[in-house]
């Protein structure tokens, strides 16, 4: 049942993402040449922002899972950690990659090493890659789980820094456009496409996390069965 729900959410989310793409390319209003160097590239916004939002959800799951394993030794929380790391990897790469494409068009450079938000987000993505690859190279055990959960826990400190970075340090990455009151609010149609994208990515990432947790559970069951088989033979 859970498998079906997870896969269903993945499929619905994916459909929503594809719809966002179409809306962004064909329906969303264009922006003024005065406000943007590359008005066409601005449409990446409808992908980039929801992907970043989904990445925050994923890293949040990583944090909660890491803390849950370290402090409560909960198996469910460990599965949440692994799912959060994988989801963070996927959405982090999407955000960074779409951001680089947009940056190259808009700023003339895909990256800026002095921008706090870019770099902290990039670090979170690297952390996710590190956790996913690291876990794949090690046998499952408390040593592996404690080590990577500690990284997941401490790495999470980058999330609030990334979130507030553009409020405090606005360097190159633009500041917030939603939820800031009168200043920085966006056009209705743009907001609608953004909302569709945000909902789609959220559904997608929840489905992804559910699926990944199930995969980890199945891997553990498989190991247990194989260990039992070893004892019997």
């Amino acid at each position: 049942m859970k498998q079906k729900v997870g896969e269903g959410l993945l499929f619905i989310g994916f459909t929503g993402i594809a719809s966002t793409l179409l809306l962004a390319l064909l329906w969303a209003p264009s922006v003024s040449i005065d406000a943007f160097e590359s008005p066409a590239a601005q449409r990446i916004f409808y992908w980039h922002v929801p992907a970043a939002w989904a990445a925050f959800i994923a890293f949040g799951a990583l944090f909660i899972g890491s803390a849950g394993w370290l402090f409560k030794r909960s198996e469910v929380m460990w599965r949440l950690h692994t799912a959060g790391a994988e989801a963070g990897l996927a959405t982090g790469l999407m955000t960074v990659w779409s951001g680089c494409v947009w940056g190259a068009a808009e700023w003339g450079t895909p990256w800026d090493w002095t921008d706090v938000r870019l770099n902290t987000f990039g670090l979170l993505t690297l952390l996710a890659i590190y956790l996913v690859l690291g876990r794949a190279s090690q046998p499952d055990g408390v040593e592996t789980r404690d080590t990577f959960a500690a990284f997941g826990l401490y790495g999470f400190v980058l999330v609030p820094i990334t979130y507030v970075a553009t409020r405090i340090w606005s360097i190159r990455h633009p500041g917030p456009v939603v939820g800031t009151g009168d200043d920085g609010s966006i056009n209705g149609d743009m907001g609608l496409v953004l909302l569709v994208g945000a909902i789609s990515f959220t559904v997608f990432i929840i489905g992804h996390i559910m699926n990944s947790m199930r995969v980890t559970l199945l891997e553990q069951r498989l190991e247990q069965l194989q260990a039992n088989m070893d004892k019997v033979i």
Binding site: V116, L123, I129, Y130, G134, E143, F151
Partner: peptide
């Protein structure tokens, strides 16, 4: 250090934390 195979993890992936 606690990992069974510490040399198999890519600590280098985390070094960009110092670039900013």
């Amino acid at each position: 250090n606690r990992l069974a195979r510490p040399r198999a993890v890519f600590v280098g992936l985390l070094t960009p934390i110092l670039i900013l």
